[in-house]
Amino acid sequence: MKLGMLVNTAKHADQVVGICRAALAKKHEVIIFAMDEGTRLLENDAFVSLAALEGVSMTLCDHSAKIIGAKTEGLPPKIACASQLNNAMMNHNADRVIVL
């Protein structure tokens, strides 16, 4: 199944990483969309490293990143600077969505 993770705060990095890895271990796919304060996690190595894992797709709201001043240079190519369309796609495709 597919788990969507809408990351809109920077307060729950441990939970995002832990839940994502646990979902992958159970053969679920994970779709992560970061927006608002959640884009600050792009400076968190453990969060960014999730994008490299098989079964994870990660995008972020470029508009949010610019407003927040989040660092987007040098991100792995698997992390797409995108738009709210990607959030819509995540919600459309995911079986469950958690907000952290």
Partner: peptide, 8 residues
Amino acid sequence: MSLGLILV
């Protein structure tokens, strides 16, 4: 975000 969600 709500407005974005209607895009699909």
